[in-house]
């Protein structure tokens, strides 16, 4: 990897935990244009492949008694479907394919990013900001289309004393617009931090005395990251459902 090369060049203990997030063109050149195929493109494509393998190839037999691979697809379907139904309500079910797309992409990208030498697409704000903004815009548009001006009732806490309501409305508005920020930074931040920590521990493995401890630490950290990979996909999805519920039923 790039970090080891740097370490050898400069000598001593040098960490480049962020080098793994560099975006490099795959087929020569060092200019990243709009359509350049980069390592990010490759791992996004692999995420598509993973989703197709899980949801389409796995279920190709349409068995009444499911095979293992079909069970995985059905499990993912049931997991997200139940989440949408329980959190966002029955009338949110028509957004299920949309939410399923977000979940499947994030969970696939997160797990693919955990493979050694791979590239974690969800560690980039460019990716998570687009995902979060897509949710934010969808929710806002759906809110106004469904409820018209009544959607603004989301910011007007009618259960609070009248004097407090303007202040609460201000807080609600701010929190509403902070949503996409927290939504995107939470995902990218978690993935990026985990990968960077792994890299730092890996850097320590260069010292012979510390290396056993370093390997143990990497193992433990990796286990944690596996958990984080799923939990962050889950959190992103369930927050999407919560926001969607606000849009469909804005009354507090």
């Amino acid at each position: 990897m790039a970090s080891e090369a740097h370490g050898a060049e400069e000598g001593g203990l040098v960490f480049h935990p962020m080098d793994q997030f560099n975006i490099k063109p795959l087929f020569g050149g060092d200019h990243v244009g709009l359509f350049t195929i980069t390592n990010a493109t490759l791992w996004m494509a692999l995420a598509v492949v993973a989703v197709v393998a899980m949801m389409v190839i796995g279920t190709r037999r349409r068995a009444i008694v499911p095979s293992r691979s079909q069970s995985i697809g059905e499990l993912a379907y049931g997991f997200v479907y139940k989440m949408v139904e329980d959190v966002a309500g029955k009338d949110a079910v028509k957004f299920f394919p949309y939410i399923m797309t977000l979940f499947m992409f994030i969970v696939s990208a997160n797990f693919l990013g955990l493979l050694p030498m791979s590239f974690a697409t969800t560690s980039h704000f460019a990716v998570t900001v687009v995902l979060a903004m897509a949710v934010f815009l969808t929710v806002t548009v759906v809110g106004f289309v469904k409820n018209g001006v009544g959607f603004l009732g989301l910011f007007w806490v009618s259960s609070a004393p009248l004097a407090l309501r303007p202040i609460l409305a201000l807080i609600e508005v701010i929190s509403y617009f902070v949503r996409p920020v927290s939504h995107s930074i939470r995902l990218a931040g978690n993935v990026m931090a985990g990968h960077a920590v792994l890299k730092v521990f890996a850097g320590f493995a260069a010292i012979a005395v510390v290396s056993p401890l370093s390997v143990v630490a990497i193992t433990a950290m990796y286990g944690l990251e596996v958990l984080v990979a799923f939990i962050q996909a889950y959190v992103f999805t369930i927050l999407t459902c919560v926001y969607l519920k606000d849009a469909l039923h804005p009354s507090h």
């Binding site: 975006i23 359509f35 493109t41 996004m44 697409t121 460019a126 990716v127 687009v130 995902l131």
Partner: peptide, 9 residues
């Protein structure tokens, strides 16, 4: 490289 990532995303 945001444009590139967003395009492919």
């Amino acid at each position: 490289n945001w444009g590139n990532q967003i395009f492919w995303l």
